[in-house]
Design a protein around this nucleic acid. Structure first.
Length: 411
RNA sequence: GGAGGCGUGCGUGAGUGGUUGAAACGAACUGUCUUGAAAACAGUUAUGCCAGCAAUGGCAUCGAAGGUUCGAAUCCUUCCGCCUCCGCCA
């Protein structure tokens, strides 16, 4: 959540920032009105309670009267406070001044293109054709519905090799590996700034237990340190998480309906950092650097995107995407994303650090290492041969223990 | 899922209705002493909100939410978490 004092003191600046995020700045005025009311009532209640503390002799008419007043005011404050809090979490993080301003993804800016697009002497196939019976959407459709898939055979070996490669790289750099829970309580999602994710139609909800399936391990790694004060010397603290991710993909009806590009369930290796405020910009570049390194290790052609204010995440201060080139489609598609949420999530989760006299909220950042499904797609399409076979990238051959992908021999 | 136990400050741990935001011990920090360190001695050390330039003052917080009471860490209810035993299970 945003700093309440910032909203009070820098109302216009906040409104302007909210507007750039493509969200109506009216929410800021709504909050301030509720905040003012809450402050007035709270002061009244505090005074009544002080009066009460003077009573020493035992029950009296005055005391009983005071009690009922306190009770009434307390109920009123509870109501106002609830509205105030609900409104507060609807105010997004203020985007960086350097972030390109735009309404939607069309406002994103390409920062650089890296790597050679493959120059095939034949007409490249799309990944579904190349995967053959290693991706089975029909059976998944019958078993689970649309946007689910079975991944089979060598593709599974390739998936695990990607996980292993990412984990090896990240552990080498000092990341702590973590397999986090994939179901999370609603209040945690809100604290993480994911109100829209759970209150829109984007998250899967397990009704009986009132838990939400994570859309990314970001959702459960961030709260790992909630309500705690980290030692400043231990920062930056970096985690490498592996988890399955679940997304309803509402609002994308008719978009990417074929194959596994956009599915309800996929696996992902995720990076998550807790840093001191002054280090978060540097950390963001560090995480982006790792993402690029991973692309380069796999020799996949990609471009780096600076997400515009209207396309970045609700809690984001700044966001970059990495888009990988897919020869089968002849265009770049989103593969990785990295965000600096500054203290927005840390405030919601109450994560601080202490260093000497200094005590402040940490900054949190997240970044995709590999979104496995889409990386598999990228490998299939970029490493395809004329005969429809696919060469396994050198960096993965050791893990998969073969050089070429072969389809399943099924009857 | 069943039975029982527990949840207090940085840690251990006291506290069963009224200056208890909270004893004691430990830990950390500061000072004195010392060439330095240790020891000893003295002192300091929770968070949030509101008002105030500030000093400071007020309120809240003993897992969470309700309730009883003039007054709750302390009594009652529900929930959550942890531990032990049993059952079930990859």
């Amino acid at each position: 959540m945003l700093d309440v004092n910032l909203i009070r003191k820098e109302k216009d600046l906040v409104k302007e920032g909210v507007k750039r995020k493509n969200i109506s700045p009216k929410i800021v005025d709504d909050f301030l009105a509720l905040d003012e009311r809450w402050k007035t009532l709270t002061a009244q209640l505090d005074n009544l309670r002080r009066d009460r503390s003077f009573i020493k002799e035992g029950p009296s008419l005055d005391a009983k009267n005071l009690k009922s007043q306190i009770k009434q005011l307390d109920a009123e404050i509870k109501e106002v406070s609830e509205k105030r809090n609900k409104t507060l979490v609807l105010i997004p993080n203020i985007p960086a001044n350097v972030a390109p301003v735009g309404k939607d993804e069309s406002g994103n800016v390409v920062l650089r293109e890296v790597g050679e697009k493959p120059n095939f002497k034949f007409k490249p196939k799309d990944y579904m054709a190349l995967a053959g019976n290693m991706i089975n959407m029909e059976s998944a459709g019958q078993v689970s519905g649309s946007r689910f898939g079975y991944i089979l055979g060598d593709l599974v070996l390739l998936e695990f090799s990607l996980v292993q490669l990412a984990m090896d790289k990240l552990v080498e750099k000092g990341f702590i590996p973590v397999v986090p829970p994939v179901m999370v309580k609603p209040e945690i999602m809100k604290a993480m700034g994911k109100v829209k994710f759970i209150e829109g139609d984007d998250a899967f909800h397990v009704a009986k237990d009132n838990l939400y399936l994570v859309g990314s391990s970001e959702h459960s790694i961030g709260p790992l340190h909630m309500d705690s004060v980290l030692d400043g010397k231990s920062l930056p603290r970096r985690y490498a998480g592996f988890s399955t991710c679940f997304r309803r993909e509402a609002g994308s009806y008719g978009k990417d309906t074929k194959g596994i590009l956009r599915v309800h369930q996929f696996d992902k290796v995720e990076m998550f950092s807790f840093t001191k405020p002054e280090d978060s910009e540097k950390e963001h570049q560090f995480l982006l650097g790792i993402q690029e390194e991973l692309m380069q290790v796999l020799k996949l052609p990609y471009q780096v995107i600076a997400n515009c204010t209207g396309d970045m995440g609700f809690g984001d201060y700044k966001q970059f995407d990495i888009e990988v080139y897919l020869p089968g489609q002849g265009k770049y598609r989103e593969l990785c994303s990295t965000s600096n949420t500054t203290d927005y999530q840390a405030r919601g989760l109450n994560i601080k650090y202490r260093e000497g006299e200094k005590k402040d909220f940490v900054h949190t950042l997240n970044a995709t290492a590999f979104a496995i499904g889409r990386t598999l797609i990228a490998i299939l399409e970029n490493y395809q041969n004329e005969d429809g076979g696919v060469t396994i990238p050198k960096a993965l051959q050791g893990y998969v223990k073969k050089k070429k992908i072969s389809g399943l021999a099924l009857d």
